[in-house]
Design a protein around this nucleic acid. Structure first.
Lengths: 346, 346
DNA sequence: GTGAAAGCGCTAACAT
DNA sequence: ATGTTAGCGCTTTCAC
């Protein structure tokens, strides 16, 4: 079934059918109804490829989920609870605006080319990146080509007012400080950290804030208490096991995401530690399961769904309006006190 | 940059460029290299729409995640841990075969039309459904149109050897029986169930197996111990709270998925119950967090990743080979004994 | 082995 | 208000 068939059946020309489909004003009610009736009757849908080729938007955006680890085998994104709400939010927001979402996974530097490809093949008219590494040039490259891009978690200084770029961040520096101040109030002096991927903006911000906040409180930073978790469960599990075997332990551990906090708690439990009695733990993100576990995880809530909805809507709106201006928005975090922290024992 | 530009730069015609791109044999090594060099140099990618319009496949499949609840507000899929690995597996398997994945969410019956649309608009050349409800006619409709479809969790009897259809199931009846037999061996006589969506094949199988297994062991089924969870956390949480307020409790509870098991445990904990001392709980699926929680969840492992990889590969292979024959595969479950069950107290 | 030309299904500028 | 026509960028048949 093609527009020509509809035209014949409705007794009009293809142009008129096209006008009806695209809601052009200069077609009388009567003709419109006649055409719409036939379209409906035959369940006709215009061929997206042909429309796109003839100059229409294809109403498709690409979602690129980046999960690169230098030390681990490709870590499938489903192992990360964070990405799940991410994909969902993008799809929902896009669908609401009549857009489609092409999802890609990026597991190594070479995979970055998928982004260029999707744009060059004209599959998508906009893209959203999550998990981007600082040192990749991809954002510069894509935006220079004039392709609209939304990035979650990206250094505003690097973004440099670049056109075609939309950035959305959570206020991680502040969120981390809230968490650490809480631990310090509870009397903790030996506070460890499980860092995320330091190549990401959030990973770096959370680490910076950790160092700065401890410094402000004149607390020493013990290099042995800095574990590299890369936002990954497996990596964290191993690092924590190593820590436990070492000579001294912190009284509290700040994990740069909930997945790592969970992995750490699992490792501690296996070695006979009780949480929070033996060690306090704080996470970051507030993934759905954080409030359900036992003990419920004290964490810093990041409004992922809101952030992603915002970026998706802004991206699509920008595409439709041809707006190219740089846009950046920061979302506040909420510190959620639950059951994994305790006053330090004297 | 279009194929014509490449042609000019390489000093050949568009036809030859096309031949090179599509790996046609009748072009000499020398010409091929010349053209490839220019393509590489300019980072040229053929326009997907134009190729598709000219008769090539667009290498895109649709993934339709269905999550319909009769009683709840649209329950975002990210709240369900199950779907996360699902999307990931489809994307990975598809990408490996050079395919793209368009993700859709379906929250109400009306949304089913998205599937027809995606096919009719020629956006996709195959589709994968998860979470399908028995009573929808969508599978019949789509396959009749000649569109290749993969469905996870679908009654083989309803599938009826339909062509263009691929079905992949886990052996839920058997898995449920394993779990219940274990509880019965532990001495449990009053075993409750939190059912899933009964409109799904898995939801129904798990419930059937529950009824049948108890019957075989001559255990009575207490209607008060049958909670309707619809695979949803919120629903389950409320139902369990209601159960706790009622006069009698089972000694064990079999939840038809892990999400519901978690929600149930949370509800019990809030009311002062200890697990497994006060009540035993078993889940289904073995989501990543199941082994990490405290106590670690005893559950029935479903090889989601393998199932989904299989269906994606079969679908794509079928599309490429033009194979239309019905295909169905069942995956075995593994019963994972962990820490949420205990011998019943005398 | 290679090029010319038709055609995929649609939109949009132009003509009426 | 509606129809005619020329592309959009590619593949593919046909001719050389």
């Amino acid at each position: 079934m093609r527009s020509e068939d509809i035209a014949r059946l409705a007794g009009v020309s293809r142009s008129t059918v096209s006008r009806v489909i695209n809601n052009y004003p200069n077609v009388p009610e009567k003709t419109r109804d006649k055409v719409l009736k036939v379209i409906k009757q035959y369940n006709y849908e215009p061929n997206t490829w042909a429309r796109a080729l003839a100059g229409k938007s294809n109403n498709t955006i690409g979602l690129f989920v980046i999960s690169i680890s230098k030390t681990q085998a490709p870590s499938k994104i489903y192992k990360s609870t964070y990405y799940s709400s991410f994909i969902n939010a993008v799809v929902d927001a896009a669908n609401t605006s009549g857009y489609y979402v092409l999802v890609h996974t990026i597991y190594c530097s070479k995979d970055y080319s998928k982004i260029n490809q999707a744009f060059n093949q004209k599959r998508i008219c906009g893209g959203i990146l999550v998990g981007n590494e600082k040192n990749s040039d991809i954002i510069k490259e894509i935006t220079k080509m004039g392709c609209p891009l939304g990035v979650v978690d990206y250094d505003p200084d690097e973004a440099m007012n670049r056109s075609n770029l939309i950035v959305v961040n959570s206020m991680d520096y502040d969120g981390t400080a809230k968490a650490l101040n809480y631990l310090i109030e509870l009397g903790h002096r030996d506070i460890g950290i499980i860092t995320g991927r330091l190549g990401t903006y959030s990973g770096q911000q959370r680490f910076e804030s950790y160092k700065q906040t401890l410094k402000e409180h004149k607390l020493k930073i013990n290099p042995e208490f800095i574990l590299k978790g890369e936002f990954l469960k497996d990596k964290t599990y191993n690092e924590v096991k190593k820590l436990i075997k070492s000579k001294s332990l912190p009284t509290a551990l700040f994990a740069c995401n909930d997945d790592m906090a969970l992995a750490a708690m699992e490792a501690f439990r296996e070695e006979g530690f009780n949480i929070p009695e033996d060690i306090s733990v704080i996470g970051f993100d507030d993934i759905p399961v954080a409030s359900q576990m036992n003990p419920a995880l004290t964490t810093v809530r990041v409004p992922v769904y809101d952030m992603v909805t915002e970026i998706t809507e802004m991206l699509i709106d920008g595409i439709e309006k041809g707006r190219k201006k740089f846009y950046c928005k920061n979302f506040d975090t909420v510190f959620k006190i639950r059951d994994t922290c305790m006053k330090v024992k004297e």
